[in-house]
Design a protein around this nucleic acid. Structure first.
Lengths: 200, 200
DNA sequence: TTCCATTGTTGACATTGTCAACATAGGTGG
DNA sequence: CCACCTATGTTGACAATGTCAACAATGGAA
């Protein structure tokens, strides 16, 4: 039961694989995750993982799902709508979101960019990502009920807000910005603009 | 000079490789681009490409850069700021942008998602992507000069707008939306919100 | 205690990116 | 007009990788 170095059975190989895969991604990027390297780090033979995941893509999908859950948790922690100033609430969430992406760029890229990870084919992944969307819908609905936001179907609006922060995160970690930006300030500007509008 | 099937020298292998790579991506996704498959389609041996590209990543980088140029052209074509209604201008560009992504999802994913393509290391790619940003800056500055938009540094504002459309495109082609969305309508809503603001 | 399902191992193979050595064409200087 | 050189293309080989098939060990249920 207690995982020991020399037991034939690992104890909780599945969890260990996910953890080490995440570590590898953080350290050297997703491309560094090879079944062999991963197995070695866990101290197990190269094909042991196949008892827990159908293939490498599935494994990475599980890692990505875990990432979405972690991100959602962070967002949930700062999702405390205050009637005093709705902008603060949005800005706090946007900053938490972008900070996660900037803090774990390779991980974040896996969560989204991966071609192979067709969402429809990975229900768990899809659900984990959707939980983030739900977090946003909640925030918008709450403010709408308080009369602080324009009325209207919150769902498409949540997509709009999500698009904004996701796009921002993506452009930043892809170094598409000219100067290494002040991430928090940029997130604040983005949400400020979204809320106040750009028109004169 | 005229490329013929049986000449030892191809004529313009570099261009042919880029074209076929793009075609392969469209047809079967970026993962289908293998040096061997690509060479075979062009009718050349497996390593011939290495006379024109240092490695596969470079080749894909060139394809991605080409994609950015194509996208920029499309944006430029609809970038006709009309004082009558600034929203129309923004919406048209957003729709053109998202339509490109939806029309060529794998291609668009390569342009952004590719971990390996660190922008700083591919000047051509970086420049091509930046041209799109410039297109946006131009639009914003123009409207500002006409007094239709709030004043302020256009550069960070352009990043915000870019983030919004890129994020929207990414979420759509990753099928992160619940229902296959009306792309144009969503793009319109996004830009409408950005311009008018969300606050009551 | 016996036995079987679960979990892990070893060997093997096809695919892929890429290097080194070799081949050919086609324009250029003599 | 011809020999030659350089740019371009080919063939052979190799290491890395994902994954299958066959085998082995474990540990809980009957």
């Amino acid at each position: 039961m207690a995982p020991s170095k020399t037991t034939y059975h690992h104890g909780d190989l599945r969890a260990a694989l996910l953890q080490e895969a995440a570590a590898l991604i953080e350290e050297n990027g997703t491309e560094a995750v090879t079944m062999r390297a991963l197995s070695e780090r866990v101290g197990v033979s190269r094909t042991a993982a196949y008892r827990h995941f159908a293939n490498k893509t599935d494994l990475l999908g599980a890692v990505a799902a875990e990432g979405f859950r972690e991100l959602r948790e962070r967002l949930h922690r700062v999702n405390t709508p205050s009637a005093a100033n709705p902008e603060d609430g949005f800005v706090a969430m946007a900053q938490a979101y972008v900070q996660f992406a900037v803090g774990h760029p390779a991980y974040y890229r896996l969560m989204y960019g991966r071609d192979a990870l067709q969402r429809d084919q990975y229900p768990d992944l899809h659900a984990a990502a959707n939980a983030i969307y739900d977090e946003l819908v909640t925030l918008i609905v709450t403010y709408q009920q308080q009369g602080l936001l324009k009325p209207g179907d919150a769902k498409p609006l949540a997509y709009v807000a999500w698009s904004l922060v996701h796009g921002l995160a993506a452009l930043i970690i892809d170094r598409q910005m000219e100067t290494p930006p002040d991430v928090d300030a940029l997130a604040q500007l983005a949400l400020h603009t979204l809320l106040q509008g750009l028109l004169r």
